[in-house]
Amino acid sequence: MHNRDMTFDLTDMRVLVTGGGVGIGLGIVRSFAELGAKVAFTWKTHEPDQALLDEIAELGGNPPFAVQLDVTDEHQVTTVLAQVADTLGGLDVLVNNAGGMIQRSTVDEMPLELWHQVLDVNLTSCFLVTRAALKYLADGSSIINVASLAGQNGGGPGASAYAASKAAVIGVTKAWAKEFSARQIRVNAVAPGLILDTPFHELFNTAAGRAAAIEGIALKKPGFPADVAGPVLWLADPRASGFVSGTTIDVNGAAYFS
């Protein structure tokens, strides 16, 4: 029997988190930084101020590299990934977190443009960033895709495009786990349920909606970004999860079981 120290040691691990300036992404960035990782993160609209960058640097001693990126723009993705890899000296972990609902819409009222926008920001972005990252990811690296409970249960009213895109993220996670296995690159996903302190629920939910959602959670409480970061850290550490690939971890307080 092998004895392993299960304490996470991510010192100097080279990590990129897309959409890391706010919400779940920022929670993941903070957690990696706290454990000594070298972290880069992208942002589109939530520009980090110097105070936040200083706070992240103080957590583990490594200054973060923050860069603006539209993850749906192929040229930008290629350029920024090269900058990130040059700054960090390569990559050990990629967290595809950037995404969003854009807006709620029923199918009969949904413009084709909105359908494409939602799929692009949640699914195509994963493809573009992952494809660009492959040349920089070390063998034995970890890719973690942030899916959603909506991709498993269909989501709430007017969320069909979002649910479809997140279900596809779960599907592509399985496909990539097989495709990248020759390089021992593990690919997994996390599927958060109700996670507060995020722009998503500020924009697309109401106080009544959140209260109703909490009633449907077995633990009778919401989650927070740190609750998602924990499983992500575990998936990133090859000593802890080196035989885990192609799976999706539910982070929903027992609201739903996949």
Rank of each mutant, 00 (worst) to 15 (best):
L91A: 03
I214D: 04
M13S: 11
K221I: 12
I170M: 11
A40N: 03
V129L: 02
L235V: 07
L112G: 06
A138E: 10
F243Q: 12
E47W: 13
G171Y: 05
F32L: 04
S141Y: 00
A33Q: 14
Q76I: 01
D92E: 14
N3K: 11
M1Y: 13
V93S: 09
T198K: 02
G209M: 08
Q68L: 02
L194A: 11
G158S: 06
N252D: 12
I102W: 01
D54F: 05
S241I: 13
S245L: 08
V190Q: 09
A85L: 03
V244I: 15
N205F: 06
L123I: 05
P222M: 10
L53N: 11
K220H: 14
N153V: 13
G230T: 15
V146N: 08
A66C: 08
R104W: 05
K135W: 10
I143M: 10
G27P: 04
A254D: 15
L26W: 05
D70L: 01
L35C: 12
V80H: 00
H75D: 15
T78D: 13
I170V: 15
A182C: 10
L235N: 06
L114Y: 05
H75T: 15
L59F: 11
G193M: 08
I102P: 00
H75L: 14
P64I: 02
I214H: 03
R131N: 12
F65L: 03
Q76D: 08
G246T: 03
A240L: 10
A147P: 01
P199H: 00
S165I: 06
A37V: 00
R186S: 05
D49I: 05
L16W: 02
N122S: 04
T7N: 15
V15M: 12
L203D: 04
L26D: 07
A175R: 02
G154Y: 15
F8Y: 14
F257I: 11
E55P: 10
P48I: 07
D54M: 08
R239K: 13
A164C: 06
V228S: 03
V39F: 06
F41E: 10
F127Y: 10
A138K: 09
T42A: 06
P199M: 01
M1K: 12
H116K: 15
V228H: 01
P238V: 12
I170Q: 09
Q50L: 15
V67Y: 00
R183M: 02
D73V: 02
G23L: 12
T18F: 01
S165H: 06
A167K: 01
I170E: 09
A161Y: 00
A175G: 04
G156P: 03
G156H: 09
S142N: 07
A226K: 14
E113T: 14
V146T: 13
D250L: 11
G246P: 07
L194S: 07
G246V: 03
G242R: 04
R183F: 03
L16D: 03
N252S: 07
